[in-house]
């Protein structure tokens, strides 16, 4: 569940952007489309609580982000918001399983290795449990990133150009997994993209 009202952001340079209101139901997928410089990444950062809006509010799962303290916001983000990026990033020094353990611990949750194992099995990474992230292929890395985004059963999943670095096969696989996993935990899935392959599949869109 995601709701934004009258969101505006002022860049340090003074330039201001206003965003259309969003209202997304749990389990739904929503595309944010826009050209370069249209502020879609800025909107994503506002939704994730990585930047503070100059005006308006973001409500995730009934909590208004602007009302949280910095530390509480960090914690809230870890527990309720999963993020997937164009390029998958990991803590390079620990294996896939430990990366997911870190995601659980940093969100203030207890370690649940069974959930990690099951999730990786579903995503076809059961064999890669003990591999360092750098040993995975690009497609595998993106799937592991999805695993990390959903491990804490978030209310909101934000994906920033998740498919634009992938070929058609991997792109459709990753999109499928994103939707499937978001649905499995009943999370709202927001995909920021300019990837035309996705516009044909998902009909809920907002153009910026």
């Amino acid at each position: 569940m995601l709701e934004t009202t009258d969101l505006a952001y002022r860049y340090p340079g003074g330039e201001s952007l206003t965003f259309p209101n969003l209202r997304c139901a749990p389990g739904a997928t929503h595309l944010l489309l826009g050209k370069s410089g249209s502020g879609k990444t800025t909107l994503l950062q506002l939704l994730a609580g990585l930047r503070s809006p100059s005006h308006g509010k973001v409500v995730v799962n009934g909590t208004e982000l602007g009302k949280l303290s910095t530390a509480a916001l960090d914690q809230f983000r870890g527990q309720n918001i999963g993020m997937v990026f164009q390029t998958a990033h990991f803590v390079r020094s620990v294996n896939v399983e430990e990366n997911l353990v870190l995601a659980q611990r940093l969100a203030g949750k207890t370690t649940d290795r069974r959930r990690i194992r099951e999730l990786l099995d579903v995503l076809g990474l059961g064999e890669k449990l003990r591999s360092l992230p750098a040993r995975l292929s690009v497609g595998q890395q993106q799937r592991a990133a999805i695993a990390r985004a959903v491990i804490n059963q978030p209310a909101l999943m934000l994906a920033d150009e998740p498919t634009s670095a992938l070929d058609d096969d991997n792109a459709s696989q990753v999109l499928g997994l994103l939707q499937q996993q978001a649905a499995a935990v009943n999370a709202t899935l927001i995909i920021v993209t300019h990837d035309n392959r996705l516009t044909g599949i998902i009909d809920q869109r907002t153009h910026l």
Partner: peptide, 18 residues
């Protein structure tokens, strides 16, 4: 080398003091 990783830790819920 680790700027992505550190940012990622923040996304995963780690505070700045952490």
């Amino acid at each position: 080398e680790r700027r992505y990783e550190l940012a990622l830790l923040r996304v995963m819920g780690a505070s700045r003091p952490k």
